[in-house]
Design a protein around this nucleic acid. Sequence first.
DNA 1: CAACCTGTTCGCCA
DNA 2: ATGGCGAACAGGTT
Length: 274
Amino acid sequence: MPELAEVEFFRRVWMRAASVPVLEVQLHPKARPLREVDYEALREGLTGSCLESSSASGKRMCYKFSGNQWLGVHLGMTGELRVEAPGFIPLKHDHLVLRLTKSSLIFADPRMFGRIQYASGADAPPWWRDLPPDLLSPKFSEACVNDFLLRHQGLPLKAAVLLQDGFAGVGNWMADEILWRSHLHPQRKVATLTAAESVAIHAETVAVAREAMRTVAVEKGTTFAEPPQGWLFHTRWGKVGLCPRDGSKLRRETVGGRTTAWCEVCQPKGNKRA
DNA sequence: CAACCTGTTCGCCA
DNA sequence: ATGGCGAACAGGTT
């Protein structure tokens, strides 16, 4: 479920418990998302320490605890972070619970495609180095996008904008939104892009990321909010989804291995000559 | 009941 | 070595 802004939402959820010592760590050692962690090291390391800071990179998060301890979180398809009462009894899919004095921090993931990582040390662990450019940083430039696309000429656009090394945080709905706004057909091959179309992908990626961060990463009850009205997001799953721009019926098909929605009027298959 | 799913990773192949 | 593809991973929902 979680893409860029939803990940940011969840990152903030746990930060509500910053600076409070961890009394106890409970975990499900056999749960798949924890398959890489050294359970004893994590338990001993985090007990008594405080959450100090955190950052997100694309769909990944890293929480830093006192004593130079790093906890990596990827929510996979169905993961979520929650804050519950101190005495909260973990549910079936609550694989990791950090008990604090006034709350419990929960990592839950029913489908178990998520991943928890743990390391200690003064420097960021190997898995939190060499991160891809943030979509909202100057590093994510037109040239950066163009260079990345040049290395993936054979892919359909849909598959290309889902690659996390180049488009960190873009997931299925953001990818469709970006291509819809760019007037580009998801099955177009990267190799057929004109310079102007590459620039459009950059611009719309930034626009979608910025607007999603502004609207979606906001707390609304216990879950994130939805993107603004008028976005493809709201119609792409409907039985008869209609294009928010021209009202024509959306096409839906698997592209690049993922269910993809697009408007055949707005996003013509043909290569518009520059 | 079968199909479907907002994600990654692996092995295979070119 | 690099890039592309399809399967695999699990379990809940439609």
